[in-house]
Amino acid sequence: MLLKRRVLLKIKETLIERLLFFCSLLSVFTTLGIILVLSFETFEFFKEVPVLKFLTDTQWTPLFINKHFGILPLLSGTFLTTLIAMLVAMPVGLVGAVYLSEYSSLKVRNIVKPLLEILAAVPTVVYGYFALLFLTPLLKKIIPSLSGFNALSSGMVMGIMIIPLIVSLSEDAMRAVPMGLREGAYAVGSNRLQVSFRIVLPAALSGIIAAFILAVSRAIGETMIVAIAAGQQPKLTLNPLVPVETITAYIVQISLGDTPHGTLEYRTIFACGMSLFILTFILNMLSFKLKRRFQEVYE
């Protein structure tokens, strides 16, 4: 009797273990599935369009009669909006992180941190309309030549969107700097500003850079804001005042349009998706490595 119960228990244990294992595998298989589909369709695409052409042609017109498949205009759009976003997010995010980590009282931090997380939870479509209907008209009063769709306002709003990410991750990195280091610096008569920027910040640098890289990767992959407010004109330009199209915005355009499945036009989005995937994958790996190196120093 006792033996039977024990065997039953053992079977139950094994079943639960298997179930948990399966759940964890699910996400791994999903990722693998995505990579497989992406690779297959990309491979089909490059059968018809040479890779070199894809990487060097300066025009992107897959939907026109005179077809060109150069990713550069989409890359420049992505690069431009990301650059503007980072120019906004890096200084603001860093100063915010320094404030929260080195200056603010416990009380303030306990209020501000959750608020930032709420900011991070705003749906990006809201940010998109904020850029299109609020920021662009506002900027137009200062820069009359600004187009209704442009890289500037969508990039700036994207920057606002990733500020919480930078603040949160950089603050974590700075707080991980051992208290002893701060004490040592204060004990030789440093003031708060010197401790923050000459001791804590350099000590947390690799963690902060990791946060920046992750933010870049987030900006590159951001879709809704640029699809709504940056326009849909693939143009090889670094002018922030005119409409541009990012890789992600192009994918949205095709996915929502009436391009028939299985055609070359349709496959372009997989080639674009693959480029995006490789780009963000490299950035995330870099960020991960930097973060680990940072942890090694202080453990």
Binding site: P178, G180, E183, G184, A185, Y186, A187, V188, G189
Partner: peptide, 15 residues
């Protein structure tokens, strides 16, 4: 603190 120097329990050189 400049006039009263301090050395701590755990060595804490700056990185």
């Amino acid at each position: 603190r400049r006039r009263i120097g301090m050395v701590f329990q755990k060595p804490n050189p700056f990185p």
